[in-house]
Amino acid sequence: MYLLYTILASLVCFFFLKWLKKRRTCTDLKRLDGKTVLITGGSSGIGKETAVALALRGARVVIACRDPSRAEKAVREIKFKSHSLNVTHMELDLANLRCVREFCKTFLQREKRLDILINNAAIPGVLDWTDDSFSMCFGVNHLGHFLLTNLLLPRLKECAPSRVITLTCSNYKYQKLDFQDLNYNLLPFFTYCRSKLANIYFSQELGRIMEGKDVTSYAVHPGFVQSSWTCHYSFLFRMLMQVIMWMFFVPCETGAQTVIYCAVSDEAAKHSGGYFVDCRPATLRPFARDSGVAKKLWEASERLVKPV
């Protein structure tokens, strides 16, 4: 009898966890033939799954990664899964603004189109600094993508209608920006939360600036995903998180669904500057909808990276 109760309890727990992780999938089957997609951090996790899905739809996919060897391996896997040969990679280090500028120069020379830019790459809360002396989270997660997007905007406008999708996280709600200390680098979790809030403000302001120019912008929370972000931490922490992620987090393929939705959906295009969760628009906390703060962050970011 004890064994029966144990089995029943295990089954209940299993199905409860399965229900807890249930997410919508993108059902829009739109093709992307003739379109070019650029995905930062596309060598693993959500970025790679997004690359597979969009290559399957006929898009030319360029993944931008810091590690060329990992990128080459990812390109082979993406080609195999998508049955597409129109996938390539370019080297990009978002922690170095000079590298971002060189990347954009090379990309614009090499690629004649850019229809969808997916700002996917991110680093978790680590107490480190970029080559330009910005905190690693703020520098990579926000400033690197801010400069990248601004330098590629002319091509996005040429290829309009086009889209910019920036991945964020629901953890944004635990912090607010401090304009006296945008380079905050004390507590890793809070540093990460601030960078993800910056992603949301960036996406909103980009949507406002591009209004009427047929370039739309979306901030996407993909859910809590079983990705490789724990590689930055100790072995014991990684082991603990592997158990937690298996129980509560969703696979990368599931996490990519809202990104794919925002890349192809006509319905999503009606909500430029919006925040998306689970393949639909979601409501932000009031402080994260402040257009004045979004504009102020944009202007501060311009001063820091000098895009022109």
Rank of each mutant, 00 (worst) to 15 (best):
M1V: 07
T6G: 09
I7Q: 07
S10N: 05
C13T: 14
L17V: 03
K18R: 14
L20V: 00
K22H: 15
T27K: 14
T27M: 10
D28M: 06
G34R: 04
K35Y: 12
V37R: 02
L38K: 01
I39F: 02
S43A: 13
S43D: 04
S44R: 09
K48C: 08
T50C: 10
T50D: 05
A51R: 07
L54A: 03
A55P: 01
R57C: 02
G58C: 00
V61Q: 05
V62K: 05
I63A: 03
S69C: 00
V75A: 01
I78M: 04
F80M: 13
K81T: 07
H83T: 11
N86S: 15
L92H: 08
L92E: 09
A95C: 11
N96Y: 10
L97W: 03
L97I: 00
R101L: 09
R101F: 08
F107M: 14
F107Q: 07
R113C: 01
L117D: 03
N119D: 13
N119C: 15
A122E: 01
P124A: 11
G125P: 11
G125V: 14
V126I: 15
V126D: 07
D132V: 12
D132Q: 12
F134M: 11
F134I: 05
M136S: 15
F138K: 09
V140A: 05
H142T: 08
F146V: 06
F146C: 11
T149F: 07
N150Q: 14
N150L: 11
L152A: 13
L153A: 14
R155K: 11
V164Y: 02
T166R: 00
T168L: 03
Y172R: 04
K173Q: 14
K173P: 01
K173E: 11
K176V: 10
L177S: 10
F179N: 10
D181L: 12
L186G: 10
P188L: 12
F190C: 06
Y192K: 13
C193A: 15
F202R: 03
S203L: 00
Q204T: 00
M210L: 14
M210I: 07
G212N: 08
V215T: 01
V215C: 12
V215I: 11
P222Q: 08
W229E: 03
T230Q: 13
T230N: 12
H232D: 11
S234C: 07
M239I: 15
V243A: 15
W246F: 14
V250M: 10
C252S: 14
T254Q: 12
T254K: 11
G255C: 11
G255I: 02
G255V: 05
G255Y: 05
G255K: 07
A256P: 13
Q257L: 06
T258W: 02
Y261I: 06
Y261T: 06
Y261Q: 04
V264A: 11
S272Y: 01
Y275H: 03
Y275V: 06
Y275W: 02
D278E: 12
A282M: 03
T283V: 13
R285M: 13
D290V: 05
S291M: 12
V293Y: 02
A294Y: 02
K295V: 11
K296Q: 15
L297H: 04
L297R: 09
W298R: 02
E299S: 13
E299R: 13
S301F: 01
S301E: 06
E302G: 14
L304E: 05
V305S: 00
P307F: 05
